Amino acid sequence: MSAPLSVLDLSPISEGETARQALRNSLDLARSAEAWGYKRYWVAEHHFVGVASSSPAVLVGLIAAATNTIRVGSAAVLLGNNTAAQVVEAFGTVEALYPGRIDLGIGRSGQRRVEALRAVAAGTPAPAESKRENVVRDGVVIPAPFDPTGLLTSPRLQASFEALAFPGAQAPDFEQQVDDILSLLNGTHRTRDGIELHASPGEDADVELWVFGSSAGPSAELAGRLGLPFGANYHVAPSSTLDAVEAYRAAFRPSAVLSEPYVVVSADVVAAEDDATARELASTFAHWTHSIRSGHGAIPYPDPATALPLSDADKAVVEDRLITQFVGSPTTVADRLESLQKLTGADELVITGVTHRHEDRLRSYELLAKEWGLPALLAA
């Protein structure tokens, strides 16, 4: 297999365990992923739910300290929750201690929620493509789109956004925030009044800036226009991944960072020694994703040994996530990943996977690394 593999870790909290244990598990997985030959170790940003990745910059620093060579970063810092200056200073601090290893991935989910609320208020109907049926292209499932409006407008999500911001605060335009990050990093930042500001640490930090997106929207276009690497999340929005990648490539302009487009595509994976074992380990993925889709937020990851079956109606809510999760033996999973890589033309794949037991998650990543032929270190 030619494309590198990387890890996306949500630091999941398993049923019956704590955030403290989840974070320790993340450090353990990061050290193992480095030894198994994964290229990067990225962490997400989620709040008030059953995962422990609420503070990406802090977690990135801890993981960088626990490892030696693997690149470590965010996928992604949500700019709706952070100012450009806060992001640059935080990641600049980590990069100062672990130079040449830090990735700064950013996303615009805060603005997506504002846009969803405006659409609801205006009575804007869902796009016609939402009625599209599932299709299979070159062995890759492209499911019918999931309408996120109900999720993005849930009272619980509203409460979490309010808890993360000062009353009345409004996030600046995403493109403006990206421009501010770039100018703070390269030392050319000026306020609206023309005052110079220099981030220390942060200015001239050797961080790799990434933009993440889920559709052929502003994020994909901006990443392309600025000549930045782009991450497309097949594991969350599989229906629009191809559109996002195509939009990025169409908008791409060479930059000092990249001479040609560079795309990472994510996939949700559970591998085990055989298909049946993998299916058992992944059997509560539907419960977990349903808790997210229902607007209640991710629950602690359920134990397959005790979880009750979901109803057909509940399964239908997460069908697109179930049919696009790669579950099976190392060969089964690797074959599906290879199909995804070929269809999207991804330069790199980033793997996320959750199981109830930490040892099963470790084993999943280890089996896949060996099957894919990653250049493992001599010892874990």
Rank of each mutant, 00 (worst) to 15 (best):
P229A: 13
V141D: 10
S291R: 07
I181D: 08
T153Q: 02
R113C: 07
P261Y: 11
A237E: 14
R225T: 15
S6P: 08
A271G: 10
D274K: 14
V43I: 13
I299N: 01
R71F: 10
W42M: 00
P12C: 00
V270T: 04
G150C: 11
R336H: 06
G105T: 08
T149G: 06
A44Y: 03
L5T: 06
L308F: 12
G37A: 08
F326A: 10
E221L: 13
Y262P: 08
A3V: 06
A75L: 01
N134G: 01
S26W: 05
I63H: 02
L258F: 13
Q111A: 13
K342W: 13
A282V: 02
A30R: 07
A369F: 02
W210I: 06
T306D: 07
A75S: 02
F91E: 03
A19T: 05
L377H: 11
A84I: 11
P145N: 03
S74Y: 00
R31G: 12
G61Q: 00
R361L: 11
S266T: 10
A75R: 01
D275F: 07
F326L: 15
W372D: 00
L377R: 09
V140K: 10
V207P: 04
V354H: 15
R31Y: 13
N186I: 01
T324C: 09
V120K: 14
L97Q: 12
W210G: 04
V88N: 08
V207Q: 07
R156W: 12
W36I: 08
D179S: 09
A376R: 09
V135A: 15
A237P: 05
A271S: 14
A307C: 14
R156N: 03
D28K: 14
A96I: 03
E34P: 13
A286C: 08
W288D: 08
P125D: 11
Y41A: 04
A35V: 04
H296K: 09
Y248Q: 02
R132K: 09
R225H: 15
N233R: 04
Y365P: 11
V263W: 12
S14Y: 09
G73A: 01
A282N: 05
V354M: 12
P238A: 07
P309E: 13
S11Y: 05
R132I: 04
A256V: 08
A380T: 11
A380L: 13
T284N: 05
A122T: 06
S14H: 07
S32P: 02
G202M: 12
T18F: 13
L258Q: 09
R71E: 09
I106E: 00
L184R: 11
Y38E: 11
E89A: 15
G168D: 00
S130I: 11
V269W: 03
T69P: 14
E15I: 12
F91M: 03
G297D: 14
A380H: 09
E280C: 02
G231R: 06
F91C: 02
A305H: 10
R192T: 04
T352S: 08
